[in-house]
Design a protein around this nucleic acid. Structure first.
Length: 426
RNA sequence: GGAGAGGUGGCAGAGUGGUCGAAUGUACCUGACUCGAAAUCAGGCGAUGUCGCAAGGCAUCCGUGGGUUCGAAUCCCACCCUCUCCGCCA
């Protein structure tokens, strides 16, 4: 959520920055709502003030044993106007809030301008793709090894679900353990285990609701309430600080969590239908930071580096891309994507997304800390995948494939694989 | 699921219809004392919104949502959560 004061004081600037994202801000609608809000609020609060003053007089008169009937008659006359004002405000404010809640974050000035993903800017490439003659994709490799069973996933649940078995399942688990250990022991993150089902308030806090409900799996409950399956650990972990006022010296907070992620992928039918690239359920190791506002831009570079370290230790070639204004997510002020090399697709594919949200999520969540003046101030939140485990498995299978269809286990993972050096070797 | 207790400021904890946004303690900030610190003493110290150039004013907030009343932390209704005991259970 944007700062309402910014819209009031500099609406053209906000509209201009949002235009970079391809969004047209309805400034006339905002100004009309704002004018109405101001009129109603001032009017209503004025009436409330009158009522309060008169009611206090009644209290004092009665306390002294004097007659208060004249004042009581006066305050009774306020009743209808007051009720009408309060009702009108109660009707208007949700519309006002909704307008604000549907506005995405403003892109940081360093974000490249562009309409869509073609406007993204490559920052760097790391590693050199190994020459593989006629590379096979992870579907062929995993199926042949008996470790990926897409048909079983379809039978049990439906499309976009996969079953992993044997050494492939273990490799998947090894990747998770490796990532968690790396981030906790070398990058200073605290491991957390969180719920996978969260309430609507949490989804609102990180920005998935109200605008992106169709991307989520929802679980209705018998009492009429609802829970949502998390689409990323970002939601439960970032919401740890929702409604909190933190002491300044606990910042920065750095959390890492491994969770399954659930996405309905509505609107992506026909995209990446083959294999494990786009699933309704996948595992991810997520990095989350809560920092002081003056440190969030340094933190974004560091956090991205932590995600890159995973790829480097696995010796997987990748590139780092700065998303342009038109390709960024709703809540982000700036995002770097890490894209891993997939030989069978002969291209780089997203495996991590690292963003600074500045105060956008914190304002929705009312997540604050006490600053030097001892006043509550919104903190900044960041997160990034470190990494998406399913896609990392795909990358390992494809980049470490051998001519005979076996998979060499990356050196960094062998300790997690009981020393196994090769999967599917005779 | 059943029975009971409880949810008040950063924390602890008073407050059962009228100057209560809320005693007190603690934490925190400022000052005094001190070479410095601790202790002690004095003062200050909730959040959000809104109006205003400002000084400052006003509104709202005592788990949440309704209701009663001129007036609600306080009374009524519903719900949520926490704790204790019982039942069930990986």
């Amino acid at each position: 959520m944007l700062d309402i004061q910014l819209l009031r004081s500099n609406l053209p600037l906000v509209a201009e920055r949002l235009a970079l994202r391809g969004m047209t801000l309805n400034t006339a609608a905002f100004e009309a709502l704002e004018a109405e809000r101001k009129r109603l609020q001032v009017h209503t609060q004025d009436l409330q003030a009158k009522r309060n003053t008169l009611s206090k007089q009644i209290g004092m008169l009665k306390g002294k044993g004097e007659d208060a009937s004249a004042v009581m008659a006066e305050v009774a006359g306020l009743g209808d106007a007051l009720k009408a004002g309060e009702a009108a405000l109660a009707e208007l404010m949700p519309r006002f809030d909704t307008f604000l809640e549907l506005i995405p974050n403003l892109p940081h000035e360093s974000v490249p301008t562009g309409r869509d993903e073609t406007g993204n800017v490559e920052i760097l490439r790391w590693g050199t793709p190994r020459a593989i003659a006629a590379p096979r994709d992870h579907v062929d490799l995993g199926t042949a090894l008996g470790g990926l069973d897409f048909e079983a996933g379809v039978k049990i649940s439906g499309s976009r679900f996969t079953v992993m078995k044997g050494q492939i399942a273990r490799l998947h688990r090894a990747l998770t353990q490796f990532m968690l250990d790396l981030h906790t022991t070398e990058h200073g993150y605290t491991e957390v285990y969180t719920p996978y089902l969260v309430n609507p308030e949490s989804m609102f806090g990180t920005g998935q609701l109200p605008k992106f409900e169709e991307d989520l799996f929802m679980v209705p409950r018998s009492d009429g309430s609802r829970l949502y399956l998390i689409p990323t650990a970002e939601v439960p972990v970032t919401n740890l600080v929702r409604g909190e006022i933190l002491a300044s010296d606990v910042l920065p907070l750095k959390f890492v969590a491994h969770t399954p992620c659930f996405r309905s992928e509505a609107g992506s039918y026909g995209k990446d239908t083959r294999g494990m690239i786009r699933q309704h359920q996948f595992d991810k190791v997520e990095l989350v930071q809560m920092v002081r506002p003056d440190q969030s831009w340094d933190a974004l570079e560091q956090l991205t580096g932590h995600a890159e370290a995973v790829l480097q230790k696995l010796e997987l070639p990748y590139r780092k891309v700065a998303l342009c204004t038109g390709d960024m997510g709703f809540s982000a002020a700036k995002t770097y994507d890490l894209e891993v090399w997939l030989p069978a697709q002969n291209t780089y594919r997203e495996i991590s997304s690292c963003s600074n949200f500045e105060s956008f999520q914190a304002r929705r969540m009312q997540a604050r800390f006490r600053n030097e003046k001892n006043k509550p101030e919104l903190l900044h939140t960041l997160n990034g995948s470190g990494l998406a485990v399913g896609r990392t498995l795909v990358a390992v299978l494809e980049n470490y494939q051998n001519e005979d269809g076996s998979i060499t286990v990356p050196a960094a993972l062998r300790g997690y694989m009981g020393g196994t050096e090769k999967i599917g070797a005779a």
